[in-house]
């Protein structure tokens, strides 16, 4: 991943600035005095700012460098359309407060996520809107020692939708299909998948924390084909952000959505209802399940695929129950 270009603030630029000031001002060809003195003399009213650390200036320089890169198209995008520069500087920062202050996400067992090489994170899906996926990605990006990017596999509906589809690709998502998953895993990426899909995310509130069917186990065959470990991931807290107590089928059909949720606040409170409830979140990464011990054509053995799928599902379900018994309050944790 390309690092942000840091522009030396105390080097040439500042020197140039001073020189320019020198020629326009009264100083003329007089040798430039000691920097602190110049600043104090010329910017007397701004003296309070001078005590401020240069941090904001550094950030400004980074921001400008980012803007310049974007304007010139001077950045790299991988074959899936993943744009790390945009993800780190534009897409993730506004979600950070949601992660830290609103949901107060607590991660458990991050050491189970490998620092390098391919791995498949399999998690439960809930919350009406896929905020759980986003929060998992932020957790790994900001709290994992290697600050890895999570490459998520999304439903085709996401990619069909204008704006959303383009943003999803730029944030590192790709279509949930075996060729894409295997290609990512083979190139040593960390891939996240939510195999319950719409059945999980759109389930009614009364079914919370009950895992739905795990598709056809396509994610297991992808892991078997590439020999990467499967990391079961259990997310507690996402179920309560939008308690889905109803579903308006007619509106869902009209908009082409898989469901049109009714929560205690949506759509009755309009846009206000779109604010997620501030539940306390726990994201636990379990012990990796190895898949490279089953031989070359293991993915062709449906029984093995079913068994592994069940094992992953059970692990997540048990972890969910354990986390739930430890939780005393939905909002306070």
């Amino acid at each position: 991943m390309e690092e942000a270009r840091v522009i030396p603030l105390h080097g040439a630029d500042r020197e140039a600035a001073r020189r320019r000031r020198g020629t326009t001002g009264a100083l003329g060809p007089v040798p430039v005095p000691e920097p602190a003195a110049t600043e104090a003399a010329e910017e007397a009213p701004e003296v309070e700012d001078a005590v401020e650390p240069a941090g904001w200036e550094q950030r400004l320089a980074e921001l400008l460098a980012f803007a310049r890169r974007r304007l010139r198209g001077d950045y790299e995008v991988d074959e899936f359309g993943f744009d790390p520069d945009l993800t780190d500087h534009v897409l993730m920062p506004p979600l950070k407060p949601l992660y830290e202050k609103w949901f107060r996400v607590e991660t458990i067992g991050l050491h189970n996520v490998p620092g390098e090489g391919g791995a498949l994170i399999v998690a439960n899906h809930s919350g009406t809107l896929p905020l759980d996926a986003t929060m998992t990605a932020i957790a790994i990006r900001s709290e994992h020692p290697k600050r890895r990017h999570l490459r998520m596999l999304g439903a085709d509906l996401v990619f069909k939708t204008p704006v959303l589809g383009a943003l999803a690709r730029k944030s590192g998502q790709t279509l949930a299909c075996n060729p894409d998953a295997e290609r990512l895993l083979r190139s040593g990426e960390l891939v996240g998948v939510w195999p319950e899909g719409f059945k999980g995310i759109g389930k009614p509130f009364k079914d919370r924390y009950k895992l739905q069917r795990f598709g056809r186990g396509g994610f297991v065959s992808a892991a078997l084909n590439t020999g990467v470990p499967i990391i079961p991931c259990s997310i507690v807290g996402a179920e309560e952000i939008y308690p889905k107590i109803g579903d308006i089928k007619a509106l869902a059909r009209l908009f082409g959505f898989p469901y049109f949720p009714v929560t205690p606040f949506f759509p009755f409170l309009g846009p206000l209802g779109a604010i997620p409830l501030p539940s306390k979140w726990y994201i636990e990464f379990g012990e990796p399940i190895r898949t490279d011990v089953h031989g070359a054509h293991a993915a062709d053995d449906p029984m093995l695929v079913f068994n592994l799928t069940d094992q992953v599902r059970e692990t997540i379900q048990q972890t969910l129950y354990r986390l739930l018994t430890q939780r005393r309050n939905v909002f306070l944790g």
Partner: peptide, 8 residues
């Protein structure tokens, strides 16, 4: 950036 340097 020059401007920022001024306001330091």
């Amino acid at each position: 950036l020059d401007l920022a340097a001024r306001f330091r």
